[in-house]
């Protein structure tokens, strides 16, 4: 009973724009607390108003510094801005050192900007499994714009594209030679490119190379949108106004062409799939029978009595994850 009251209090706080309530609810989401499901039910009707921007790119490209200045400028255009910045969790210790705040300390003095660090907690797609849900909570709180900053990515950590409306891929001038290799993956999810640290040598060259590479690629994400390549220096603000303008132009393009609806529909789909995946995985990994069964199956496999496919199906069936017609009786002999 007591916890029910607490949830009601927290939700009331959320709608009254109490940052502490917001912060608390985010922790519940991140920790996968069952109370969150009842909260989500109540607040979900209040989501969908915020425009979501994803900032992704390799480590050291200047994503955090860029987010810092983007947030300020977007706020100056009359918006409340929520930021979720993801940094990697150590797969060995489960710990994480979240350093995105170092580049964003100026934002702490601004009551219209809220920034939350998130550890990836086992996810390998560039954002955490619950990042979208955290963005939903921020959306319900009433932020007009939500910026999601990914961990430093390589070529295939692309989950952010399924979580936001506009994806900005941040590169540095030195990325030139790797453009070829990047033709698949990271480049395909961009709606806008920002070549940051553009005061360094090679920025213009990269811009031309990139535009050249893009001209040979069919538009993958949204047709009728020529992928812009912008030069920025996040540290001194060069090119940032143009970048914000371009984000707004993309937003208008999505709205005018009905692509926003398609993109949002896709976001919902990704969301549901991710939840199902997580549920199924939990059913697997949290099953107390898993370890002993795996041991038995690997032994049988070692002895050549069972192939790995049959072994996997056998376990999935006995764990009631998969409904296949297979005789699992030998497991219990």
């Amino acid at each position: 009973m007591k916890s029910d009251n607490k949830i009601e209090e927290l939700m009331e706080g959320l709608f009254n724009k109490d940052k502490r309530a917001l912060s608390r609810i985010i922790t519940m989401v991140e920790s996968d607390k069952p109370e969150y499901y009842s909260i989500l039910k109540e607040i979900y009707g209040h989501t969908g108003k915020a425009y979501r921007i994803g900032i992704t790119g390799p480590p050291g490209a200047g994503k955090s510094t860029l987010v810092n200045i983007l947030a300020k400028q977007i706020k100056d255009r009359g918006n409340e801005v929520g930021i979720v910045a993801v940094d990697p969790t150590s797969p060995f210790t489960g710990g994480a050192l979240l350093g995105d705040r170092i580049r964003m300390t100026g934002l702490l003095k601004d009551p219209h900007i809220f920034m939350r660090s998130m550890a990836s907690r086992g996810s390998t797609g560039g954002i955490a499994r619950t990042t979208t849900h955290v963005a939903d909570v921020m959306d319900a709180y009433g932020f007009d714009v939500i910026i999601i900053e990914t961990v430093g990515v390589g070529q295939l950590e692309l989950d952010v594209a399924g979580a936001v409306d506009t994806t900005v891929v941040v590169l540095v001038p030195e990325a030139g030679s790797s453009i070829q290799a990047m033709k698949a993956g990271l480049i395909e999810i961009a709606d806008i490119f920002a070549i940051n640290k553009a005061d360094r040598e090679g920025a213009e060259t990269l811009k031309f190379e990139l535009q050249d590479a893009l001209s040979l690629m069919p538009a993958i994400k949204n047709k009728g949108w020529d992928l812009p390549v912008k030069l920025t220096v996040a540290l001194d603000g060069t090119g940032i106004k143009e970048l914000v303008d371009t984000i707004y132009t993309h937003k208008t393009h999505l709205e005018d062409t009905d692509h926003l609806n398609t993109s949002r529909m896709n976001q919902k789909k990704v969301n549901i799939i991710e939840i199902m995946k997580h549920r199924i995985e939990n059913q697997l990994w949290l099953n107390p029978e898993l370890e002993p069964t795996l041991k038995r199956l690997s032994n049988l496999s070692m002895e050549g009595k069972i192939d790995p496919f049959t072994a996997a199906n056998t376990f999935l069936k006995s764990a009631k994850v998969l409904n296949v017609n297979i005789d699992a009786s030998f497991l219990h002999k």
Partner: peptide, 16 residues
Amino acid sequence: VARALRDAGIEVIYTG
């Protein structure tokens, strides 16, 4: 200290 805490499985936010 931040690193030691991280290595102990703790989530550390460093402000600078």
